[in-house]
Amino acid sequence: MFVYPQHSGFNAMKLQTHSLHITRSGKEILKGITFAVDTGEVYALLGGNGAGKSTTLLSFLGFLSPSSGTIQVNNKDVTSDVASARKMIAYLPESASLYEHLNARENIEYFLQLAGTSANKNDIDAALDRVSLAAEARLRKLRDYSKGMRQKVAIALAILRDTDVLLLDEPTSGLDPSAIDEFHQLIRSLADSGKTILMVTHDVYGACQVADKIGLLRNGTLVGEFTAQGEESIDTETVHKAFSSSIGTSSHAEPA
């Protein structure tokens, strides 16, 4: 079902923005977007290159300050308390940037320690099992990993951090089809366990499969929002048409 965003005020949402404007290097990237993600919800932001998807994620982490409007995590303004916001969020960047000279386990241990938590070997192995990273690969340095393997380590790290909120930047980029399916199941199960997930993606098909809501970004403006109805997924065809027209390509293209 296609609806135009109509959030006018703040409810008790986990993540929300209101008339958010972000300007970088003199260029307005976000032009007053308003949306909210509730607890246990998966929200997918769809949009073409330069639409402002990653900027939105970085704003929730406090890396970019709004030129106007507000941005909140757990009903707290991010700009006034960045540290609290970051504590609640596990962020998975697009390139799954981790240390090349460390193996999977060392990377996870180090980042968890920095985040002020820890995990024993069994917990780490369980998380790596959950993302299907082969056991024999876990002691190899990440410089020998494929992009998909790194992505899995980053996802395992996000799981182990056990934060309320997950921000995922193109999380399935670089994963093979079976890994993408596994990942979608994982995302769904995390959301079902109460995690709030905001992901940005180009993958219309994947977004429709996993998201409770989809926001369509075009040139820094949220031009549409789609919501799943009950047990039914969001209609891929509808979203695909809207997405294609928003980025100016044929509406008959096959879903990604």
């Binding site: 890396f63 970051r86 504590k87 962020y91 390139s95 981790l98 920095l114 985040a115 002020g116």
Partner: peptide, 14 residues
């Protein structure tokens, strides 16, 4: 350069 700075800072490191 290796983009590790973003997740590092996102961990709450100032």
């Amino acid at each position: 350069e290796s983009s590790v700075l973003t997740p590092l800072l996102a961990m709450g490191i100032s």
